[in-house]
Design a protein around this nucleic acid. Structure first.
Length: 513
RNA sequence: GGCCCCUUCGCCAAGCGGCUAAGGCAGCGGAUUGCAAAUCCGCCAUCCCCGGUUCGAAUCCGGGAGGGGCCUCCA
């Protein structure tokens, strides 16, 4: 592969040139959600980022296999399901559906497989047995634990010393464990809990083992990329790493990628900061004072994704997520999303302009060839790709996208494209620039189709269009008669209804916010 | 207590030792317009503080202040 891509690796804490295990192929595994509650904003960060990573790797010529797992059996589900009068599997099914729908709206198209933990029980048991045979794990009264003291380099991902895990004293207490850092590979079932037969009795897998099993079955012993939220680094990824390498005896992951967490200014902080106030649970406070804090189900400050989609286009959310480098935290706020939307509007207006100039929808522009077509807009393409090569710096790339947009508008102004005064060469140069915009925005997974308009039934839609045309015609007559007062009044009153009129040489366009 | 990380314009944000510190939002001035909207042009930061390394630092090192994450379930 001929490219300059460098990827930050959490394990080595530095950017490294990207090389794959198998030339031309990339295996990528990202930890998905435990499906016991509807997805919140934080759950969308990883999928959007790694979907974009896949787009870029594919663009570079790699054949990428991208797996996101679903944890569909876990203590959380066992507690939550009865509350909703559902079985564990029914709850899992319901929440998974919500998750998948959200991803689809966000144009996350790259996931090849979404394996469920419960579908890999035999593989999980096989690995656990192997670990016991090799002396890395021990059964204890129906449970099976991984013995961290047997693994020489345990803790290498997060700089954790097994000896010190004791000192923290925040480790799950259990008489069955030999040392505090040991973690469960298999948990015995209490009556009524979901359970599978195993050599150690009825039970279910521990949290970390499913990822070792599924990644190995679907992608092999050594993964090119393993991703997930920063909060999964320890203990989840550390433990996955320990299990997999102990079992397979080879490197588990070449590039560990961790995305920053979604944060929110919640009231929780405010309360905590108060001199002697009680630490009471809080609802999902939008806005609020105090410092930002990560969004999570356990803190109860999460913003449910489906709620966001009632107020914002999915594309706005995707753009918002990609406008910041993936390793940094992102602070969510309604204002911020609104700001991003205003920025996106300038692209949408350009697309309208494009239709007037080229008589073609941006969305209908042909899929661009992946090469440098030259022309005066080529430098933007180059700079965009340089940003992507630098550890998928989508924030920098978004900046270039805006610059390209601006350059295209400038060009169209200068050459008077709308007035039809441009030469054939000018039009060609312009369209080459549009092709770049198409190519680059496609890499980010945005502008691939027109944003959904608010739904209205066909008849009333037709009526609105008709009435608008009527008002525009009446206003045009008034203006023709130099009756600007009347014309302005029509525009002002429409403005109060959220409708903006734009007078152009060729007629008047209208837009509803 | 231990381990990571962050601090750049009013807000968001790129920057990873050397071009005038990207870009977005907001704001101001101008072109265009009958007036607007949209678009374009121009203006708008020496980088948390203090030391040090270097010919040269927002970028490296040390100290300080503030913030975040993990060490318990978490994307």
């Amino acid at each position: 592969m001929d490219h300059n891509l460098r990827v930050y690796n959490t394990l080595t804490k530095q950017k490294e040139p990207f090389k794959t295990v198998v030339p031309g192929k990339v295996s990528m595994y990202v930890c998905g959600p435990t499906v016991y509650k509807p997805s919140h904003l934080g759950h969308m960060v990883g999928p959007v980022i790694f979907d974009t990573v896949k787009r870029y790797l594919t663009y570079l010529g790699y054949d990428v296999k991208f797996v996101v797992n679903i944890t569909d059996v876990d203590d959380k589900l066992i507690v939550e399901a009865p509350k909703q009068g559902l079985s564990v599997s029914e709850l899992a099914e319901r929440v998974t559906k919500d998750y998948v729908e959200n991803l689809k709206k966000l144009n996350v198209t790259g996931i090849d497989e979404m394996p469920r933990a419960t579908h890999y029980i035999p593989a999980i048991i096989e690995i656990i047995q192997g670990l016991i045979d090799k002396g890395y794990a021990y059964p204890a009264a129906g449970d099976v634990y991984f013995d961290v003291t047997k693994d020489d380099d345990y803790g290498k991902l997060c700089n954790r010393d097994p000896e010190q895990l004791e000192a923290g004293a925040r480790i799950e207490v259990s008489d069955k464990k030999r040392s505090p850092g040991d973690f469960a590979l298999w948990k015995s079932a209490k009556p009524g809990e979901p359970a599978w037969d195993s050599p150690w009795g009825k039970g279910r897998p521990g949290w970390h083992i499913e990822c070792s099993a599924m990644s190995m079955k679907l992608l092999g012993k050594t993964l090119d990329i393993h991703g997930g939220g920063l909060d999964l680094q320890f203990p989840h990824h550390e433990n996955e790493l320990a299990q997999s390498e102990s079992y397979n005896g080879c490197t588990f992951v070449n590039y560990w990628m961790h995305n920053g967490l979604m944060r929110i200014h919640s009231q929780a902080t405010k309360i905590k900061d108060a001199p002697s106030g009680p630490l009471s649970p809080v609802g999902s406070g939008i806005g609020g004072e105090g410092q930002p804090q990560k969004m999570s189900k356990s803190l109860g400050n999460e913003i449910v994704v489906s709620e966001i989609f009632k107020r914002h286009q999915p594309e706005t959310l995707r753009f918002f997520l990609l406008a910041t480098h993936y390793r940094r935290p992102i602070d969510y706020s309604e204002e911020r999303l609104e700001e991003v939307r205003r920025g996106l509007d300038s692209f949408y207006r350009f697309f309208e302009r494009l239709e007037r100039v080229a008589k073609r929808s941006f969305y209908a522009f042909p899929s661009p060839p992946r090469d440098d077509g030259g022309g005066e807009f080529a430098e933007f393409r180059k700079r965009f790709l340089e940003h992507m090569d630098d550890d998928f710096n989508t924030g920098g790339a978004v900046g270039v996208l805006y610059e390209l947009l601006s350059a295209l508008n400038r060009f169209a102004d200068l050459k008077q494209l709308e007035a039809g005064k441009a030469t054939g060469d000018d039009v060609k140069a312009f369209e080459q620039g549009v092709v770049y915009l198409k190519e680059l925005s496609g890499l980010l997974g945005v502008f691939s189709s027109a944003p959904e308009k608010p739904k209205a039934d066909h008849a009333s839609q037709k009526l609105v269009v008709g009435l608008m045309q009527l008002l525009i015609d009446l206003r045009a007559e008034a203006r023709k008669a130099k009756n600007f007062a009347l014309g302005d009044q029509i525009r002002k009153r429409l403005g109060e209804l959220g409708v903006t009129l734009e007078d152009r040489p060729g007629g008047t366009d209208w837009r509803k916010d």
